[in-house]
Design a protein around this nucleic acid. Structure first.
Lengths: 158, 158
DNA sequence: CGCGAAATCACCCGTTCGGGTGACGACCCG
DNA sequence: CGGGTCGTCACCCGAACGGGTGATTTCGCG
């Protein structure tokens, strides 16, 4: 199992935080204890600090970034991590949608034309049209956009 | 400014946590300090505990609940927080997309046909076509589905 | 083996879409 | 007042789409 860059950076982050924690604790220990400060203040500070770190990490973990290109301008935009889309397999079967049909539906949702889908899926345009026609039928959709809409709300596609 | 129930419960939660913290600290102080334990262990425990609490809270805050009705049974289910869609107004302006165009884009995203959009917006089909054409242009899209795709990833539409 | 489901491709035909151009009124701003 | 933006509508035309029918191949299952 490989570590992707993001995960690795998180691990690295934790390591650094651990190191900083140890160092910080030692420092605080010497500084504060010798001047007879209350253990409560010390504990409270540490607690607040780490609650904050936890909060920050929590938000960080559920956010992603993605690059988009518009008019030849590449930019990186924060995107709310749609928490790991899970297909409603039960509904797929209930509607009798085949894997290939689902695949074509996904490509449609990506905004591709029939020709582009045909190229990407290595089939003829006619084949794409039959697949899409069938999936429209099963979804009760009359248009591509409607099929995509339905597909989303039925959790068939992300 | 009114406090909605969710926010109020969060405030309450924080209050309780605060109380528990104080009590816990006192308890630990007496228990541990008298037996001459290391301040580092104590601090580490508190830190870990509150990092955990922070993490938990962080995840909690970005999740919503919504009521759904399935076969006449109302139940409250956790929902992967679609963090209350907020339109990227800056990008709307940057792309020079007008309110009307945005409106038509939304209706397209709902899977409506040109005719249906015309009816819903109380304008002629031709008008819808000019609006959609313009918005396609500004989004660099060639198809409805592509426009919807771009609109979503740019946070122009939900 | 034969049946059915899935995938593939073809052809036709009517509708919808996208793209281009032009035009007109309302409104705001300098 | 004149220019700019926005919204509205029209017409045209080629490309894309959807809907229907039919046909072939492959594959698993009984």
């Amino acid at each position: 199992m490989r570590l992707d860059p993001t995960l690795r950076s998180h691990v690295l982050l934790f390591g650094l935080l651990g190191g900083a924690l140890i160092a910080g604790l030692r420092f605080i220990e010497y500084r504060w204890l010798v001047v007879e400060h209350s253990i409560e203040i010390y504990g409270g500070l540490v607690a607040a600090l780490f609650a904050g770190v936890g909060l920050w990490l929590g938000r960080r973990l559920v956010h992603e970034r993605s690059t988009v290109v518009i008019r030849d301008v590449v930019r990186e935009v924060p995107v709310p991590a749609l928490p790991a889309f899970v297909r409603d397999q039960a509904r797929v079967q209930a509607l009798g949608i085949t894997p290939r049909e689902l695949e074509i539906l996904e490509l449609i949702a990506e905004g591709l034309s029939t020709r582009e889908i045909a190229d990407r899926a290595h089939v003829s345009e006619n084949t794409v049209k039959t697949h899409s026609g069938r999936v429209f039928d099963k979804l009760g959709a009359r248009r591509r956009t409607q099929a995509v809409q339905r597909g989303r709300e039925l959790r068939l596609i992300p």
